[in-house]
């Protein structure tokens, strides 16, 4: 790097001298590509920061951008990608924001007489490629973070434990059951049993479309754990297909009470609680 430090300086000089022009062109290209979805002033502020961090890095060829001298530009680009994700831009739009600087730089180099500058511009282009890929990576990382957050929220949202009678809880399970979700249900249900002092819990799986051995195992464990705490679980709403799967897989429900519908399960629980439901003559 020290060998061509002198030449690299030529490109740095060019970039410094023509900073305003380059930034203006860069912003112009990107703004046109985004078709007004991002404010020009905002882009300009962002790009000015990038540019300031970028110019001292001229001369690196972008093969390894994990060094300490790249910390600033990396954090800038990561922040930029994250905001792009939240604003709903595509990854290629985000990455091409970086690539778009090449065009004005090459135009500038074309007019320059010294032949070394072309080599330096190529190296600079490789550096930009590396940064473009970095935005791509940060973009997907940011998106994964969002997905993880959402699935956690979903986990919380979709597993309500409700009290439907004095001493009777109900857990209406909806959607696909996986081990993580059944685990959450299990813990929530057991905690609610203690909190409300309920001796009966109905696990209704009407909304569940598929059960595999692991999920069944988790359900059985929940029932056994509840039993250890002194409460009884009733499983209701098993779909015909699921019943077939359960039998085909050879899963034994043992002495666990299963009922066709939530209503049947509630009636059973009430009877066990000593509550009698009587139909009254309606006038």
């Amino acid at each position: 790097m020290t060998a061509d430090a002198g030449h690299a300086q030529r490109l740095t000089e060019l970039l410094r001298e023509n900073a305003e022009l380059l930034i203006d062109k860069w912003v112009g290209v990107v703004a046109a590509a985004l078709r007004g979805r991002s404010a020009r002033t905002e882009l300009e502020a962002d790009f000015r920061e990038f540019y300031a961090a970028l110019v001292p890095l001229v001369g690196h060829d972008g093969k390894n951008i994990s060094g300490p001298e790249f910390t600033e530009i990396r954090s800038l680009l990561e922040e930029y990608s994250r905001s792009r994700v939240r604003a709903g831009f595509t990854p290629s739009e985000t990455a091409s924001s970086v690539f778009s600087l090449k065009e004005p730089v090459f135009e500038l180099v074309e007019n320059d007489a010294s032949p070394e500058v072309f080599q330096q511009a190529l190296a600079f282009s490789r550096l930009l490629d590396a940064f473009g890929l970095l935005t791509f990576e940060s973009y997907s990382r940011a998106r994964e973070d969002i997905i993880r957050e959402q699935s956690e929220q979903l986990l919380e949202l979709t597993t309500p434990v409700v009290k439907i009678w004095e001493g009777v809880l109900a857990v209406p399970l909806v959607g696909t059951l996986d081990s993580a979700r059944t685990q959450v249900v299990m813990e929530k249900l057991l905690e609610m049993l203690v909190e409300t002092g309920s001796e009966h819990a109905i696990i209704d799986i009407t909304g569940v479309f598929a059960v595999d051995t692991q999920v069944a195992q988790h359900l059985l464990k929940t029932v056994v754990a509840a039993r250890l705490m002194g409460a009884e679980c009733i499983v209701s709403g098993i779909r015909p297909q699921i019943a077939q799967t359960i039998v085909a897989l050879g899963i034994e429900f043992g002495d666990i009470v299963t009922k066709a519908s939530l209503a049947d399960a509630l009636r059973h629980a009430l009877r066990r609680e000593g509550v009698e439901v009587v139909r009254r003559e309606v006038v």
């Binding site: 299990m186 905690e191 464990k221 056994v224 754990a225 509840a226 250890l228 705490m229 002194g230």
Partner: peptide, 14 residues
């Protein structure tokens, strides 16, 4: 046996 905590019940089942 009375008053078993959920975490304890889960452990015993596991």
């Amino acid at each position: 046996v009375v008053g078993m905590r959920p975490a304890v019940a889960i452990t015993l089942v596991e």
